[in-house]
């Protein structure tokens, strides 16, 4: 049997340990899916696979046990999934009956966001879908996740680009009863950005993470929601070489800035990727070019807005197998 594995991989299948069997990775931007698509995934797993699905760490589905010989049939069968992807993300795939057109750029994952979670500062599902709309289909190996708040339940800090929701808390001292619920909570759970002085709360913007917990704690709505903002952390990764948490890149930027830098990231990769390698992770490219080049190119033509903070330097850190460890 002759199989073009490059094409197979680009098609979101993979070469598995069982010869002639493959597995299909279904994209679920933002980890949000309607049940009709669930039913279809289930049917494909029953009909072509082993009647089982694996939930991936990126919130997609992987359907194992599909015979490579039946990939074309499966591709036709998943047409409604691709149609739905077009619809939710606004991508124009041109053809939706030939399977996924790319798999390098991974599914954009998201926490449940403000459709459900009280802490979330925005609709993470929507943002994940909008980012997917900008970056997919693409072969560059990029991982992006979006989190509703700095709690980062989706582990955006483990991604090439992690986006955390912020809100500017607005304080109306006339409504404050001085219960200090916000101050105590900020000190215990967040960064201690609030201080009670002269029966009034003072906020240190430098320390404030924009998590919005003060708003949630306030019984009188002395704290209310101001503008939505986002902070961006970059180049977190796992891997065998140098695992590390993502480092702060931007704070207090608007949604359109987030979308624009996702777009610019691909131009940056396209310009600097080492094409002699079979593939190169974006984190390794940044290691090579250095942060300033990355920053200047990604922020090109971006109107950051008045509130934005941009990291001057980044020391990524993390550890290497032989150093920063003591055994």
């Amino acid at each position: 049997m002759s199989v073009d594995t490059k094409k197979l991989v680009k098609n979101a299948y993979r070469v598995t340990k069982e010869r002639y069997l493959t597995a299909l990775r279904v994209r679920v931007p933002g980890g949000h899916l309607d049940t009709k698509q669930m039913t279809l995934i289930s049917r494909i797993a029953d009909r072509y696979g082993r009647g089982e699905v694996h939930i991936t760490t990126r919130q997609g589905f992987e359907i194992p046990g599909i015979p490579m010989s039946r990939m074309e049939e499966v591709n036709r069968e998943i047409t409604p999934l691709l149609d739905a992807l077009q619809k939710t993300t606004g991508i124009d795939l041109k053809v939706t009956f030939e399977g996924y057109p790319a798999a390098g750029t991974r599914n954009v994952s998201a926490c449940i966001g403000n459709r459900v979670c009280p802490f979330a500062n925005y609709d993470t599902t929507r943002l994940a879908q909008d980012i997917e709309g900008i970056i997919y289909p693409n072969d560059f190996h990029v991982k992006i996740a979006v989190s509703g708040c700095p709690n980062d339940c989706i582990k955006a800090h483990m991604q090439d680009v992690g986006i955390l929701g912020q809100v500017e808390p607005l304080y109306d001292s006339k409504r404050c009863i001085g219960c200090k619920a916000c101050v105590d909570n900020c000190r215990k759970r967040v960064t201690g950005a609030l201080k009670f002085h002269n029966f009034t709360v003072q906020r240190d913007h430098e320390k404030c993470t924009g998590c919005g917990e003060c708003i949630l704690k306030c019984p009188t709505a002395a704290w209310t929601r101001g503008e939505k903002y986002y902070s961006v952390v970059i180049m977190g990764r796992t891997g065998k070489k140098n695992p590390r948490l993502a480092a702060p890149f931007l704070r207090w930027v608007a949604r359109d800035v987030v979308l624009k830098i996702c777009e610019n990231l691909y131009s940056y990769i396209d310009k600097h990727i080492d094409r002699s390698l079979p593939k190169e992770h974006v984190g390794n490219i940044v290691d090579r070019t250095g942060y300033p080049v990355f920053r200047d190119e990604v922020l090109q033509n971006v109107d950051l807005g008045e509130r934005a903070m941009v990291a001057k330097h980044i020391n990524f850190g993390g550890y290497e197998y032989h150093s920063n460890a003591s055994f």
């Binding site: 403000n114 979330a120 919005g212 709505a221 209310t224 929601r225």
Partner: peptide, 15 residues
């Protein structure tokens, strides 16, 4: 209705 002034994001406050 105070638009987007609810405790939770994207919610309004009726007051």
């Amino acid at each position: 209705t105070k638009k987007d002034k609810g405790m939770y994001s994207d919610t309004d406050l009726i007051t």
